[in-house]
Write a protein that binds this DNA or RNA. Structure first.
Lengths: 130, 130
DNA sequence: ATAATAAATGTTATATTATAACACTGTGTT
DNA sequence: AACACAGTGTTATAATATAACATTTATTAT
């Protein structure tokens, strides 16, 4: 069993903000939110974000340049991510569907590529906005 | 049957560069490549890119902020995109796999979201780099 | 305990990616 | 002609991300 990760000060501050948020947060919006805690520069945010991603605590939504907390049961290093994104309200929801994950993890590209990781982003209208 | 799209001058210039390229191109690298043709400003590139994406002529690789020509048989508006990306040589390959596409297009999110479009990016090592 | 190593921090500067805003041009209506 | 519309050119600026370097803190080995 993997040992619980110990986070550094800045990593914890950044993770707290992202976990409290209702939706994806952008790096600079995180920065503005933590300036009262003594974090002043983008670098500090991006470094924390990088580590948190490595740890699988958060994910980056590539199409939005924004970051969300990982909600899947165990937060190991994430090799398989999928999200549904509402194009109206911008809501992002992590999809944890075992079948989907298995299907994609075992997907074999004709050209003989061996995959380590994938990221899938679905776009549409959520239940509310529909 | 959809009529062949007529491209504007700038759209054609940008598409030509992207089609000639071996891999994904970034907006500013396109810009530097077309300055001899009288295109001077990022806006002109981004406007062309936006239209070309709308037309399905090119795709954006979100994780790289780069653009590739669509290689799939018919270049209609693209609602279902998938790519394999080599983490070593940065090669990007469009995956056109009917089964995969059908599987994902019919994927139904529990939370009742209706999808219009998806983008999938696989990461790993290509045959050469393996 | 201490030296050595690795990880994280703080800071300034700068690179890269992308959009806003406005004036203008060409083309096709009606 | 008057109008609408898509595309263009241009200047300025916003938003996202990294480089580089000095310092501090934590971890490990001896």
């Amino acid at each position: 069993m993997a040992q619980a990760q110990i986070l550094s000060r800045n990593q914890q501050i950044v993770l707290d903000i992202i976990e409290k948020a209702k939706g994806p947060l952008k790096a600079y919006s995180i920065l503005f939110n933590v300036q009262k805690k003594g974090i002043n520069a983008p670098q500090q945010i991006y470094r924390a974000l990088d580590k948190l991603i490595e740890m699988g605590k958060i994910h980056k939504i590539e199409s939005k340049n924004a970051f969300v907390a990982c909600r899947s049961s165990d937060c190991e290093i994430s090799k398989a991510t999928a999200f549904s994104i509402c194009e109206s309200c911008e809501m992002v929801d992590e999809i944890s569907d075992t079948k989907l994950s298995k299907y994609l993890s075992s997907f074999n590209h004709k050209k003989g590529m061996k995959f380590k990781r994938f990221n899938l982003e679905f776009f549409g209208l959520c239940k509310k906005c529909k």
